[in-house]
């Protein structure tokens, strides 16, 4: 069966929301079971006492990336049909910087806060409340953000094209970089004093 299955009409569109729910359950379960419902465990990545976020995040991204490249290469999936978030240079960078500040203050990102809520973390509930306020504020004040929001549109840009590399070479280098980071993380964890949480 050549994927992606729903865009190819192999699975009817009517199933899309059911599948969304099932995928969400898998997403939430693995996040919680890995420790992403705890803000202090998440923040360990930035202080060096617990690199669980770094390990889970990069292993997940590279597993999915490898699967997509392999299925595309074998002709089991048409990767050109996958949704690519358009690249708007300045808003991607500035938005990322603002999110990083929110991360350091809040200790969660939106997905992990929903996991925290599921197991009763009150700080996660307040963080998610803040998300609603922030998004409402952005929407109401959109005229202030509009020119920044629409600036620097590069379309569905792919990183290896921009760097002038082949997809395979870039993917290989990314995997090597991740393995290097995993070794570095283990080394740093041994040097940093354990934090009890």
């Amino acid at each position: 069966m050549t994927g992606p299955l729903i865009p190819m009409n192999i699975i009817p569109e009517a199933w899309n929301n059911v599948i969304a729910l099932l995928i969400g359950i898998g997403f939430g379960f693995t996040l919680e079971a890995s420790g992403f419902s705890s803000s202090r465990k998440i923040m360990g990545t930035f202080f060096g006492y617990d690199f669980v976020v770094l390990r889970v995040f990069f292993t997940a991204a590279l597993t999915a990336m490898t699967g997509i490249i392999y299925f595309d290469f074998m002709g089991w999936m048409d990767a050109s049909m996958l949704y690519i978030n358009p690249f708007y240079v300045s808003p991607a960078i500035i938005g990322g910087l603002v999110m990083g500040a929110g991360f350091a203050l809040g200790g969660f990102c939106p997905g992990t806060s929903f996991c925290g809520i599921a197991i009763g973390k009150i700080d996660a509930m307040v963080f998610a409340g803040g998300l609603f306020v922030g998004i409402f504020f952005f929407s109401e004040a959109y005229s202030l953000f509009e020119s920044l929001y629409n600036s620097g549109n590069m379309g569905d840009a792919l990183i290896f094209d921009m760097l002038g590399m082949s997809k395979a070479v870039f993917a290989f280098l990314l995997i090597m970089a991740a393995i290097g980071m995993f070794y570095g993380a283990t080394f740093i964890e041994k040097l940093v004093k354990k934090v009890e949480y």
Binding site: F27, S39, N85, P86, Y88, P91, A92, I94, G95, G96, L97, V98, M99, G100, A101, G102, F103, A104, L105, G106, G107, F108, C109, P110, G111, T112, S113, D123, A124, V126, F127, A128, G129, G130, L131, F132, V133, G134, I135, F136, F137, F138, S139, F145, L148, Y149
Partner: peptide
């Protein structure tokens, strides 16, 4: 701090057209 963090994350995720899950 959690409330302020959530507000900032909300604003940033709209600017960047996605958060840690959807964009990154």
């Amino acid at each position: 701090a959690a409330a302020v963090g959530g507000i900032l994350f909300g604003i940033g995720s709209q600017l960047a057209r996605g958060c840690t899950s959807g964009a990154a």
